[in-house]
């Protein structure tokens, strides 16, 4: 069990390093590794959200291209690679599937330190991992409800009854992730 955890943690740190190599030296080998892991997941995510295979392929390629182009904006003290890629995929999904714009919050003002604190990075990556484990450990029914929400696959009555979402169950995890983020934003 612990070894899976360690492996996951190491994997997270690896992805962070790959994105750094793209940013610093346009490293295509690092990109190929990220692509191999994430592109099929993004494609699956888009298909489960209602895209057909052709559109999902197209969008997954675009999402990975955005990752390359915006590598300099990735802040590993605020998000894991998977989280950052999720936000890019989600925005592409709203644009391509729902034909809507997605208003984004104003960016935080740029700080003085260009490099995020390593302790913050490590803690955030760990926290993301534990959040993933907490979701995996939910009873099937609850987990499916959360997954459906993220695939935009909730019926109207399910949306109306969002109180039924098992947010309480993973609240302690969200709370911890929140404390990390608050700290990282300072």
């Amino acid at each position: 069990m612990t070894s899976t955890k360690d492996r996951k943690q190491k994997e997270n740190e690896d992805w962070v390093a790959c994105i750094a190599r793209i940013r610093e030296s346009q490293d295509e080998a690092a990109f190929a590794r990220l692509f191999g892991h994430f592109a099929p997941r993004v494609k699956a995510f888009l298909m489960r959200s209602g895209a057909d295979a052709t559109l999902a392929e197209e969008c997954a390629q675009e999402v990975m291209a955005v990752l390359w182009q915006k590598a300099h904006l990735f802040d590993p003290s605020r998000a894991s690679a998977a989280t950052w890629i999720f936000t890019i995929a989600r925005n592409r999904k709203i644009d391509a599937l729902r034909k809507q714009k997605r208003p984004e919050p104003e960016d935080l003002p740029w700080g003085n330190e260009p490099e995020p604190d390593q302790a913050d990075v490590l803690a955030l990556q760990q926290e993301s991992n534990q959040l993933g484990e907490a979701i995996a450990a939910l009873p099937d029914k609850q987990r499916v409800l959360i997954e459906k929400a993220y695939f935009s696959d909730l019926s109207h009555s399910e949306i109306a009854d969002q109180t039924g979402l098992p947010l309480g169950t993973i609240k302690s995890r969200i709370r911890l992730a929140l404390d990390r983020l608050r700290h990282a934003m300072k």
Partner: peptide
Amino acid sequence: GAFDAMGGAIIERCGTA
């Protein structure tokens, strides 16, 4: 940020195509 992290966890566990 915490809810986006949930989205990240979903991407990791939603299978592959």
